[in-house]
Design a protein around this nucleic acid. Structure first.
Lengths: 159, 159
DNA sequence: TTTTATGCAAAGACTTTGCAGGAGA
DNA sequence: TCTCCTGCAAAGTCTTTGCATAAAA
């Protein structure tokens, strides 16, 4: 039941990604790799628009279109290389599926996201699922509220 | 800490809604009530489009525009009369905030939503929040997977 | 050579907004 | 009367799609 996920290095991730491409008869392109790289380096949850901008800044010679970003994100998500998370009005954000399972504390004031893991909750979730004969594949848990800094009147932080 | 919410009758809900309108110097209109009524009667999570259609079917004489539906939903949500929940690609859905706090099991196959309550998880969430000095205002927990019927190869159900 | 990707621009889906007329307080 | 609402249509977002060209296999 318990699946421990080890943080992958970038080269491992790339090998895995190329394998997925091959299995689906898709082609390796520099745009696809660059988007993966940007996601790998991003330590936060990132919107398609932000990814597009990062690609333009870091690889200015490569003319990458926003459509390719969307297409690649959909591809990566469909193959479980990345996850998406949707906040109220803030839209969809992506992160690499490259760390142990975790959930999120989200500050509704500054938008900051704090990640945490809690085995006890995971266990309880399995029990609940069992009660309903439901087979859990994934879950989303977001605790919304006000973070310590905002409570004290801190500054605005980027997510 | 523990706030037990009793299921309200429609007349109680309406009184509360009128109070909110008054407090915000907003006007009572038949469109606003009708949208609230449709939400009250709907036992499922409902999209703006569905609410719009229901209003047209149930109150055909009233020419209600989709813009009013959106405006009213935003108003109701801002005043915590309704909650919204966002599923992956299925868009935003609303439900009356009129039952004890609960979370959702969501079948990725047929889209069915099963609601459940679990005090143990709520307690654990408070502990986690305390650890991060985070003040929780609300939370979202969705367990995604396959429901019993779909696992057995059941039929498609509307949410 | 064959197939799939890409960028661009156009189209789509969903939601919000501006406005003039209409309804509530 | 004065203010807020409404429907309509137009404008905004965000995302996807069609197409001709370009790049990978």
């Amino acid at each position: 039941m318990k699946k421990v996920k080890k943080m992958k290095r970038y080269d491992e991730l790339l090998v895995e990604f190329k394998k997925i491409l091959k299995e689906n008869r898709l082609k390796y392109t520099i745009q696809r790799e660059v988007i993966l790289k940007v996601l790998f380096d991003s330590k936060k949850h990132t919107t398609p628009e932000e990814i597009y901008d990062l690609v333009k800044v870091r690889f200015p010679k490569l003319k990458t279109g926003i459509a390719t970003v969307y297409r690649t994100l959909n591809l990566l998500e469909a193959n479980n290389v990345i996850n998406s998370i949707t906040f109220g009005a803030m839209g969809k954000k992506y992160e690499l599926d490259n760390k142990p399972h975790h959930d999120h504390l989200i500050c509704d004031e500054c938008g900051k996201i704090i990640e945490f893991e809690d085995e006890e909750i995971e266990i309880r979730q399995c029990e609940i699922a069992k009660k309903y004969n439901f087979k859990i594949k994934s879950h989303i848990m977001q605790l919304h509220g006000i973070c310590e800094e905002c409570e004290k009147g801190g500054e605005r932080v980027d997510i």
